[in-house]
Write a protein that binds this DNA or RNA. Structure first.
Lengths: 253, 253
DNA sequence: CACGCGGGTTGACCCGGATCAAGGCGGGCG
DNA sequence: CGCCCGCCTTGATCCGGGTCAACCCGCGTG
């Protein structure tokens, strides 16, 4: 599963955002956008922010962006591709903590321990913006909007962490998972009703604290009920309202 | 359950830390201590921090420190007593998010939404330090150590949120819960082996995503196995190592 | 006093999802 | 080509913990 020479699925990420030339479009959808391209910034400050960003990648499917225990020096915004974060306990069992889509930020939970408390593994061929954290903190001291933005990012992730905490049925969890993904894709300008699941059924199951067989069964049932169309990892939400209804206990609002 | 006129349990909190006269002892154990009394601060800056702190309380058992939807203006450090945070979904079901002991901080998850996303309810007679967040942010911009401290607090809570995420047996959850409490009491200078459970079995069950009956059964079993001594809400850990062993899959390290 | 009520404990039963098992793709490679 | 190996699906069985129910206790109140 964690092969050192993982096979890249595709020669080129199918993700439209991978186009490195389209800076402004990507940045407009990134979680840092309000910090990077906020209208209120004067030019010298924006230049400072730009210069602490470093573009890194590509990482192929299965490669690590960072590993548990690595010293914390930077946070990463996903430019394209998908990432899972996971912890591996001493018995070797994997625990998937989350999936991160283009525009989202990984590494925030490493600030306190000053070492990464989890692995980050690419699921697709992926590119990132790397933000040196010392530089970013220093900048945050001088630009209140940057500080506020970091506080908000951290606090936001606190809120979403409690999403999968409840004891809910497999159907509720799966419906909420699909609608959460849909909402996050929509927030970044992608289709909210058709998208590709970059993660395996096993990863979904692990994340939702279900067995892989259960995930498979629930998806089959959703299909037979006409809620979704699914073929391999290509997904279409046919009745998003019904799914939202199903997952409402887990979803915000 | 959420009576508007809850009966205060005791005329005076039994908590030794409630002594308002013993400032330095309390502050030495508080989560803000390194910000409030850090050696590196010169006096004018420390004075600024002091003046944005406001002591509030007492809150009696059952009273709200804040409610879902309240506009976010401040975070609170528990001076004495215990607090639970909870969300109530639209079907009226309660979801306990966490328990907070003296020295710990509540309200951080409200920064992003700018409104409190949950209720905070006192379980004991409780006192707090109230930190105006706008003032604190402004101070953080001028004093890097304060900014760093806030980042760390937020990031730390991110880490602990993933504690109860896994799918683990009732025994593992309960053992981890008890050892977590023990560690947090110890970190604030209390006994790590004898303490009072301020929360009901129902709250524990809700927090651990178990039925109240299961909590009762597990505690009874732990007692019959000689792991703990428990009488009502008074708890003594007889074999902390065995408990840590049981809960290791859920505990840090 | 009797009574109600919330919290706690314990027993009996049942169900959702884990586990075990078998088989079907599809892609990479000898 | 044929084989293997992940990944996925579907069926059969089992069990941990939820649910229902009965009961106890302490406390506050009419």
């Amino acid at each position: 599963m964690d092969s050192k020479h993982p096979a890249g699925r595709l020669p080129e990420p199918p993700n439209p955002i991978a186009d490195d030339g389209d800076e402004t479009h990507f940045c407009g959808t990134c979680a840092f956008s309000s910090a990077c391209i906020a209208a209120g910034y004067n030019k010298p400050e924006l230049a400072q922010l730009q210069c602490l960003v470093e573009h890194v990648g590509p990482f192929r499917a299965g490669e690590h962006i960072f590993r548990t225990g690595d010293p914390f020096r930077a946070i990463f915004a996903v430019r394209s591709g998908t990432v899972k974060t996971r912890m591996v306990d001493k018995e070797g069992r994997e625990q998937v903590l989350g999936f991160y889509l283009p525009g989202e930020v990984i590494g925030l939970n490493a600030i306190y321990p000053e070492h990464f408390p989890c692995d980050a593994v690419a699921l697709d061929t992926s590119f990132f913006c790397r933000f040196s954290f010392p530089a970013m903190s220093a900048l945050a001291s001088r630009i209140p909007a940057v500080q506020k933005h970091l506080f908000r990012l951290l606090s936001k992730e606190l809120g979403s962490a409690s999403l999968l905490a409840g004891d809910h049925s497999a159907d509720e969890r799966m419906a909420a998972f699909l609608m959460d993904l849909a909402g996050r894709y929509a927030a970044r300008g992608f289709s909210a009703t058709r998208f590709h699941l970059s993660m395996s059924r096993g990863d979904i199951a692990n994340y939702l604290r279900l067995a892989a067989e259960t995930v498979s069964r629930v998806l089959s049932r959703f299909r037979s009920q006409g809620l979704i169309r699914i073929e391999g990892r290509e997904l279409e939400l046919l009745k998003p309202d019904a799914l939202r209804q199903l997952g409402q206990a887990l979803l915000p609002d």
